[in-house]
């Protein structure tokens, strides 16, 4: 009778030892992975791309009910305000018609001036529209996953927009999905122009709802309500994309309220302006490309 009991207890001890060993190994592995992630970002990015590609269809299905509910609520809200909105639209339509005639006049003037100065026209952008299937927010990273990847012509570094303005840029692109770094993310830094005076600054996210302006050349220049647009410096973004407006100016810094309301984004446009962009390529790739550009110049 005693032998089997002893065997059982020995087996139990062995099992608990094994479990403890497995646990400690996994804890060690998480530490190792954190270090690998810091040292070899390309490897982690590739793994992340593969996983994102595989899980995006599932997320797409899961995001469907919430999208339907959001659409329904929006429809109800719009229906309630349909009269007021109609009056507003009529008013804005007549205002826009005036602008249209002005724009036509300016366009023809522009055309003739371009002809005079032999200006090289900016390349036309191509757009890819994609659905937002995941908002991987939380307190630590502000990014969204979209349903278009390399297969649809989405590449790292491209600009992501909605009708309201800038959303962010493509941070990682898998085959069928891509991760977009939002302008509110702590890693986001965008060269911008502030207000009509066009003071240069850097718009820096800090994972909160409102990014801040850094390196503003003249602090007193930013006032409440000033519009913020991309400056086009560093070739990461084309100039003139609307981002937001100054919502608070205080000693600690200047806060910007983005035009794009993150919680409402259902679809985005990924724009390819043909910019080389400081983030589109990793440093070795840039180095490798350097002789090629020299060649062209010669």
């Amino acid at each position: 009778m005693r032998l089997p009991t002893g065997q059982i207890s020995r087996f139990g001890t062995l099992k608990s030892l094994l479990q403890r060993f497995a646990y400690l190994s996994l804890i060690g592995l998480t530490g190792a992975l954190m270090l690998i992630g810091k040292a070899d970002t390309v490897l982690v990015e590739r793994a992340s791309d593969a996983v994102t590609d595989a899980v995006t269809p599932v997320l797409r299905v899961m995001s469907e009910p919430a999208a339907v509910v959001a659409d329904f609520v929006n429809n109800l809200r719009e229906l309630a305000a349909i009269r007021e909105e109609n009056a507003e639209l009529r008013e804005s339509n007549s205002r826009l018609l005036q602008w249209q005639s002005l724009a036509q006049k300016l366009e023809s003037e522009n055309k003739s001036l371009r002809g005079l100065s032999a200006l090289v026209p900016e390349p036309n952008a191509t757009f890819v529209t994609a659905r937002v299937v995941a908002d991987t927010g939380g307190a630590f990273a502000q990014s969204i996953l979209i349903t278009a990847g390399e297969q649809s012509g989405v590449h790292k570094g491209q600009v992501v927009l909605t009708g309201e303005g800038l959303v962010g840029r493509v941070m990682q692109a898998g085959l069928y999905s891509a991760r977009v770094l939002l302008i509110t993310d702590i890693n986001s830094r965008i060269p911008v122009l502030v207000g009509e005076a066009g003071n240069r600054a850097i718009l820096a996210g800090d994972n909160s709802l409102r990014p801040r302006l850094l390196f503003l050349s003249n602090k007193s220049a930013a006032a409440h309500g000033d519009k913020i647009v991309t400056s086009g410096d560093a070739e990461a973004f084309p100039p003139g994309i609307p981002i937001g407006q100054v919502s608070r100016v205080e000693e600690g810094g200047v806060e910007v309220e983005p035009f794009v309301v993150r919680d409402k984004i259902q679809h985005v446009r990924v724009a390819d302006y043909g910019l080389s962009g400081i983030l589109a390529q990793s440093p070795p790739a840039l180095k490798a490309e350097a002789p090629k550009t020299e060649k062209v110049e010669k």
Binding site: L26, G31, M34, G37, V44, V51, T52, T136, A141
Partner: peptide
């Protein structure tokens, strides 16, 4: 991997 947070921190 999905959220883009440092790999291993969530686990």
């Amino acid at each position: 991997l999905l959220a883009g947070t440092p790999l291993g921190s969530g686990a």
